[in-house]
Amino acid sequence: MSSQVSSSQVSSSQVCSSQVSARHGAGEQVIRAAASDVVLAFERRLAPALDLAEHASDLVAAARAMAGRFAAGGKLIAFGTGAASTDAQHVAVEFVHPVIVGKRALPAISLNCDVASLTAIAADAGLGQVFAHQLAKLAEPADIALGIAVGTDRSGVLAGLRTARAAGLLTVALTDARLAVSEDGRADHLLAVRSADPRVVKEIHVTIYHLLWELVHVFIEQAACITCSDSAVPGMVVALLDDDLAVIETSAGQEEVSVALVAARVGDTILVHAGEAIAVM
């Protein structure tokens, strides 16, 4: 991470000069009038953000439950309709490829990326059936279903959450105020943004899943992770498991780690960081 950046470090000269000159041109009066719309737009974002801060305990509880599922070998399955489909993809990349160096990759997929299956199921069975069908094929009981539903176009997301819950998955729903009122009880964890504006809801959803990712790692590391300190830890392989996993013996006890990146055998001593073996010693 770079050092704290103050706004004064970014001078107006770094911004294209055409913008600066235009602000002082003949259109300034018009621009100032329009700028009040900008102020109003930002003001509409404030109350829903404050409301989420008041409901932080719901978010913490969801993250803790999700950490338990990851620790049990589960994966995250994210899905949403419309703009929320981009959030489903964003959530998946957060977990699979963390922005903070050294955080282990956790398994996550977005159902929205498989356009061929999506359109095939939608054409035959209707858009409302796509996620339910994909979940029926891909979900395992230890998994987490994260459904994101905003506005009125949500039947497919709710059907997906129902299918997931029936299959034993942990279900987490990111929704807006309308859904919170009318559909409560269909997910184990319901995180609803108190706004009727779909764009504001999405913005708060982004903060919610960023924090879910961060807290999942906090809870996982607190629960078990011996190899998640600043430096790599050596350990001897005592058993090889399916899916490129292995149990290692370290000075601090046993831990299940990934050996996907190395050719490790039982008896080898391997170097592990953040749950991932990085070398055979």
Binding site: S7, Q19, I31, R32, A35, V39, L59, V60, T207
Partner: peptide, 27 residues
């Protein structure tokens, strides 16, 4: 920590507005 992060994003939006309001309208 969660409450702190929510305050951070609220403050950051206010800073973005302060430095970019006219530019947003013009763009």
């Amino acid at each position: 920590s969660t409450v702190d992060k929510m305050r951070e994003i609220i403050d950051l939006r206010a800073e973005v507005l302060a430095r970019s309001d006219g530019l947003l309208a013009e763009c």
